[in-house]
Design a protein around this nucleic acid. Structure first.
Lengths: 105, 105
DNA sequence: CGGTCTGTTCGACACACATCGAAGACAGGT
DNA sequence: ACCTGTCTTCGATGTGTGTCGAACAGACCG
């Protein structure tokens, strides 16, 4: 009996997040694009990014961002909302995310 | 007839360096350590980092850093010197490398 | 020239990862 | 109850990458 959208989404504490986590998460262009859109236009559901990848791939990227501490997720009806943890992250890695976001791909 | 240390080491122009190159290069802890030591203690030869990896692995990492635009190399006698391209990089990706270097692993 | 030191190249290997389609889980609406 | 819309999980696949040892190239020194 496989489980569907389960788990009460788990987010790492700020203390647990390493620079390695963050850099590995940001080392993918699709994920950087997600983070950029979140910063530019605010919170949004997983399906509302117009990215040229399959839904399952998208899901994989969102998990990577969540485990890397880049985003926070919470369910809202049938959609899953994403929020940038940029303020938190900036206290631990000052300027890191901002510098990446400022750099066009 | 394999070639040895050949090629007149090739470095990418600043224009060619993408944020993807830089982030992929910095996404490895060994390479981050190399960059940190270069920033902290200045230019040095490949063999003078006390890193727990084989020489061939080291060589692989230096090439990754060079192709990613992070360092510049030039031969000096039998050793190869490494220089951080931090000033150059900072004009293109302001604060990026500094933010990474400021974050302890 | 022969030996040594430094660093690179070459395979080979294991593992991580981006990608996809198919199937499943849940929430809402009809 | 059923269908639909949204997202996740699973399994498979291809590609990338970190690691190593062995062999090689070139510089220096005796």
């Amino acid at each position: 009996m496989p489980l569907g959208r389960w788990g009460g989404i788990s987010h790492p504490d700020l203390d647990e997040i390493t620079v390695d986590d963050v850099l590995r998460a940001l080392a993918d262009p699709t994920r950087r694009e997600i983070v950029r859109l979140l910063q530019a236009e605010g919170d949004r559901a997983c399906g509302t990014f117009g990215l040229p990848v399959a839904a399952s791939t998208l899901s994989h990227h969102f998990r990577a961002l969540r485990k890397g501490g880049l985003i926070r997720q919470h369910d809202h009806g049938r959609q899953r909302m994403n929020t940038l943890r940029i303020t938190e992250l900036d206290t631990k890695f000052p300027g890191l995310v901002a510098a990446v976001l400022a750099s066009a791909d």
